[in-house]
Design a protein around this nucleic acid. Sequence first.
DNA 1: CGCCGAGTTGAACTGAATCAAGAAACGTGG
DNA 2: CCACGTTTCTTGATTCAGTTCAACTCGGCG
Lengths: 199, 199
Amino acid sequence: MNERVAKEQLIDYFSNRIDLSESEKERIATAYSLIKLDKKKYLFEQGKRCVTEGFVVGGTLRVYYIDQKGLEHVLYFALKDWWVGDIASFFSGEPSALNAQALEDSWVLVIDPESKDNLFKEVPAIERMFRIISQKHLTVLQKRFLLTVSANAAERFQELIQRSPGIEQLVPQHQIASYLGILPESLSRMKKQMNKNQL
Amino acid sequence: MNERVAKEQLIDYFSNRIDLSESEKERIATAYSLIKLDKKKYLFEQGKRCVTEGFVVGGTLRVYYIDQKGLEHVLYFALKDWWVGDIASFFSGEPSALNAQALEDSWVLVIDPESKDNLFKEVPAIERMFRIISQKHLTVLQKRFLLTVSANAAERFQELIQRSPGIEQLVPQHQIASYLGILPESLSRMKKQMNKNQL
DNA sequence: CGCCGAGTTGAACTGAATCAAGAAACGTGG
DNA sequence: CCACGTTTCTTGATTCAGTTCAACTCGGCG
């Protein structure tokens, strides 16, 4: 993975959503920097200010929250072409509520708050696009929330593997369980039960 | 409640967040219309396209989802100065996943998708503000999600009454239960238990 | 080789759901 | 303004999904 290819991937992502001139593309490319995040390394951590918003070029990250009881809750897995960040921390400077950790060696294009704000001012179309991206993220999170409160663990599991085929091979099972909001033991039992039923 | 006062309330809300010229304020005021929503009436309904985004001037609405099993799940209560809408449906035209119903006689300033898009084009500062509002909504929903998966019903109840004092007088208890993700019977028992403990 | 993280299995436990019944409050029409 | 029906809330008995704690297996890796 090299910087030029990575940035082309990001420009493609943008170009599929809005019209950009060559100079705007150039401007965007300079605003982001490519970093390699080794397996188990963190992009940002709970309690500290999150000054990086990232676009995943390759690899996988898990974004999770540790509650008062010390339990981990996976909010989402960030795959290729996903955004990772803690918006509240990124823009308003409050401590991050989230951790973002690489599940495998990963490549991420990152930007800091000031650079992003400057980019917005110089390329208004980008700000418009991020307004739309925020709305999209909101609807995704809303669906996740509604599914969490209305479906049981087995139904949520079905939805996950249907929406992200191959996720089971990519992510350890205890982290799938954490995403589903159950314990690894419960997921293990659940899968056994599901196999029994389909026979 | 009259139209002029209502729109001043909306302009105040905007002005507290961004700088606006008098002509921009005028433009905004003409984009929104005031409607009165009688108790139990709907602003939009699940399954139909949501073509209204509303700013609550007075009164209270509940925004909820009906799942496959026919159970209601309250996503949030929209009080004074809150926004109500289903963004996914509003902008992309897909059927709404949500219902918005007045819990008491309410007044709402509404806008339709085309008008909002025109407003964005004519007053770019408004689009910027809605980018920020979307981000804010995202962080609010994220907090709600993380609390839902990490805290039990009693803790979520405490958080609700602390964040929205007086909500118990305003909203029937079975809808508080629905917001908390439990049944009315469970909330009733929970409150009894909480009283016993504090004696 | 030995150890450690990941997954499985079992038995007892718990928070909340479910089903059922009754009491209290509300509001709407006569 | 009262009467009746509907909605809201409470309480009890039972069930169930998922937790807890503990023991054991398996596979890799240092």
